[in-house]
Design a protein around this nucleic acid. Structure first.
Ligand SMILES: [Zn+2]
Ligand SMILES: [Zn+2]
Ligand SMILES: [Zn+2]
Ligand SMILES: [Zn+2]
Lengths: 133, 133
DNA sequence: TACATACTGTTATATTATAACAATTCTAAC
DNA sequence: GTTAGAATTGTTATAATATAACAGTATGTA
């Protein structure tokens, strides 16, 4: 008798997977997530990927494309994942979501010369974090 | 008796694969590349991935992270792939490299509050191109 | 209740990428 | 030209990431 977690609109699997990602200090990969939720009855890749897809869609998590890994959204601002920016340490792999209103506004209003109107962007910065440099 | 193509520093496999990507109007995936160069004697994934890695490293091509696909660099500016920006149509999958000096300068000089100094960035914009909207 | 929609469970498979190792070719220095 | 190191190549196998397809269950609304 699985019950939806209506208080926040997440289903059972979505909530389990979101909680795991949200608690993690670093981005999690899909199969790492799978191994960690098997004790909770989530047994197969499609269950993980479906929850991830939905969580990305509603903006609760973001995918770090260069790492095929997922982080919880730390910004109430970046609604439904339309404007994401991350700083990524090339040494320790730390990922931090950038919340910079000026940057976000600058990019959101950027228009391509060739007449394309953008609906969404993703920006990934790479360097060395404080600890690693 | 394979001979290096010293005129541009690319090895035989690198040149074959670069030429294919450079001629393509759209981003190419690694296995699409593989199928297309088998007639030229490149038979296995590692041969393709090694050439791709090198071409990315020297800035002749870029990887579109959100698509796991590769495009030739159209900018003489973005040396050794340190500052890349693309516009991607979500309908027809067209990808265009953005060459905008102001954007590039703005992002290159952007510094994270948390004390991280960036060496590189990749920006991907999504929307509908002229044809598709 | 009955229906539509979203979510779940499951098996199999497709796609993307790398490990490991032996051989060859290139470059620069001797 | 010989030699040694670095880069590149060829090859087999396998790892890692992601989706197709289908049957079943739960939920919200009428
Ligand atoms: Zn966010
Ligand atoms: Zn670090
Ligand atoms: Zn470029
Ligand atoms: Zn289009």
């Amino acid at each position: 008798m699985t019950r939806m977690h209506k208080e926040n609109n997440l289903s059972k699997n979505q909530q389990i997977i979101f909680d795991l990602i949200d608690k993690s200090p670093e981005p999690l990969k899909a199969y790492t997530i799978l191994y960690n939720v098997q004790k909770k009855g989530i047994n197969a890749p499609p269950q993980v990927y479906r929850a991830l897809d939905k969580l990305v869609e509603i903006g609760k998590i973001h995918k770090i494309e260069s790492k095929n890994a997922f982080v919880a959204c730390k910004n109430s601002d970046c609604e439904i994942s339309k404007a994401t920016a991350f700083s990524i340490c090339e040494s320790c792999e730390m990922v931090d979501e950038i919340s910079d209103v000026k940057l976000s506004k600058y990019l959101s209003s950027f228009n391509h010369k060739k007449g394309m109107k953008f609906k969404r962007f993703n920006l990934e910065f790479f360097g060395l974090c404080k600890k690693c440099k």
